[in-house]
């Protein structure tokens, strides 16, 4: 998962509010304008920041980045297609009677714009994911005055994810050792048994955790410690400049 990536101390200390607003502004400017050049610039900046500040292995890039990019490519490819009763400009394939699966110039153009918009937005999302640990996301939630119940639930779910995930992986490994993946029927059965065991185990674990919290004077409120962050004006300036350049490039591209 993305949270296991090493990030530099410098980017870690940047105020999470600035990082979040920056990433969201880039996503919004790409989604609103949908201009390929603006999106390419956004993508370049985001990946430069990610590569500079995060230590990414080739395996991680393949595992986390490549598949979503392929998915975007495929999804954009689907938008280019249309079902019509006449032949398309670029491609047409007869389905039934007078109906064709076609690709027109307009559809292809739309697909290309969509691909770049989606890829740029995804890059911004990756920047946010790689550089902002979940504890920092809680800080952002507190800043926007998110209700206490949701912030607590958010943090607790994050803590539990790794416990439940470890349990599931241990059971899957044990099942694989016992040839559970042999046939389709055994695979289905193994999955169902694993889910039920994980559910009951994690349910029991949550009750133990509640008892442990009670013994530490839990009264319904969970207090999180806040870290101090670097509120450097240079970071804000950098974010504003990048967003303005994306908007400018996109606006110029639209005009010309």
């Amino acid at each position: 998962m993305i949270n296991s990536v090493y990030i530099t101390e410098y980017i870690k200390n940047v105020n999470p509010n600035i990082k979040t607003v920056f990433a969201l502004s880039v996503i919004l400017s790409c989604v609103i304008f949908k201009e390929p050049l603006g999106c390419i610039f956004a993508m370049s900046v985001m990946w430069a920041l990610i590569i500079k500040n995060c230590r990414l292995s080739r395996h991680l890039i393949c595992h986390i980045v490549l598949w979503p990019v392929l998915f975007i490519a495929f999804s954009s490819f689907m938008v280019a297609f249309d079902i019509t009763n006449y032949k398309g400009e670029i491609f047409s394939f007869k389905i039934i009677n007078s109906y064709f699966l076609t690709v027109n110039a307009q559809g292809a153009k739309k697909a290309i714009r969509l691909f770049f918009t989606s890829a740029a937005s995804l890059s911004s999302m990756y920047f946010l994911s790689f550089t902002t640990p979940v504890n920092d996301v809680v800080y952002v939630l507190k800043t926007i005055k998110c209700p206490k119940e949701i912030t607590e639930l958010f943090m607790l779910i994050y803590r539990f994810i790794f416990i439940v995930l470890n349990m599931a992986h241990s059971i899957i490994t044990a099942q694989n050792c016992r040839m559970a993946q042999r046939t389709f029927k055994t695979r289905i059965n193994a999955m169902a048994l694993m889910l039920s065991s994980v559910f009951v185990l994690s349910y029991n674990k949550s009750l133990f955790m509640y008892n442990a919290m009670l013994s530490r004077c839990y009264s319904g409120d969970i207090n999180f410690l806040n870290e101090k962050y670097d509120n450097n004006r240079k970071h804000v300036l950098f974010a504003v400049v990048v967003v303005l350049v994306i908007v400018l490039i996109s606006a110029l591209e639209r005009v010309f």
Partner: peptide, 30 residues
Amino acid sequence: KKITAENKKALIILAMAGAFTFVLSSLKIP
């Protein structure tokens, strides 16, 4: 809000439910 006000334990169980849903949706099924 109502559930957690009535029962303090509910928040922990719901958090576990959330984690379970996350893990369930990230697992591959045959």
